[in-house]
Design a protein around this nucleic acid. Structure first.
Lengths: 144, 144
DNA sequence: GTAAATTATTTACCTAAGTAAGTATATTGG
DNA sequence: CCAATATACTTACTTAGGTAAATAATTTAC
């Protein structure tokens, strides 16, 4: 019998992005762009590799999204000591807006979680972390 | 403080799609296409509206994905009594393969869930279902 | 010190899914 | 009956993210 759990995860993922985009619309930003701004706010200037490793996406995804942030004046790229690297950092405009955006995004997220207690949220996060790709042979998983 | 829950949900969603696509590669299918085949297997012929309502996506998404299934010989479209509707059904090729694919997809999904007990899986699903868009004013959610 | 291998990023092409607007058929109101 | 409205689907355009292959800079091996 098909497991509807992943269906549910997929739906909530899309729903959250939709809600966050609704807030970000006022800043001409999108959720993936925001995730990088948030990252830079937390850690300061980062190489693109550090960004895609933290966000767990592929390198081309970061290339594209940072390019857009650059075009729209939220981020800048500087050359690193290692000339292959491009170090990404927030612009002044971004520095001045990021805290406000974070507040609004967090409010929306909390709204979506308002029917879960703080304990349930922790529980949910812990259960999600137990999901991972099975680095096992097919034989091992088919006899369930 | 930012809530990492949605980050986690987003990651697992992408991970599951990646794993399922790995299985589907052998059938020249992709996860979104499979979700429609699965739907048709469960319910029989459906209009596109019935499909997007069930999968909770937008109409254009179904148009595109069904078109691809049609091109690759997995699905067919018939004209309905209402000539605006297009009724989608499985081809003979699909009918003969769907059970086998489902078995393999389920095996992969179970592999990913192998560190969760059946009870934890139910719990996880229940917690996810409590997440939904807040049809409330901003004032209501900021005082958390 | 240079050829070979590795690394960081980019480019090109693909699936997935959303919004807005268009088309064709059905339904409803006068 | 026919004009106005609603419905089912499609088209065009956008974000998001993946893979494979290309490019450029760095490191390693000989």
């Amino acid at each position: 019998m098909e497991n509807l759990l992943f269906h549910e995860i997929h739906q909530k993922s899309r729903l959250a992005i939709k809600e966050v985009n609704e807030v970000l619309k006022g800043y001409e930003l999108y959720s993936a762009q925001w995730s990088i701004l948030f990252c830079l706010k937390q850690f300061g200037p980062m190489t693109q590799k550090e960004i895609w490793q933290y966000l767990n996406v592929e390198a081309p995804t970061v290339t594209r999204t940072v390019s857009k942030l650059e075009e729209s004046g939220w981020a800048e790229r500087k050359e690193g000591g290692d000339k292959r690297q491009r170090i990404v950092c927030l612009t002044a405009k971004a520095e001045s807006k990021v805290a406000e955006i974070e507040e609004r995004v967090t409010a929306i997220e909390n709204g979506m979680l308002s029917y879960l207690s703080r304990e349930e949220q922790q529980q949910l996060k812990a259960l999600l972390k137990k999901i991972h790709s099975a680095e096992r042979t097919e034989k091992d998983v088919t006899n369930d």
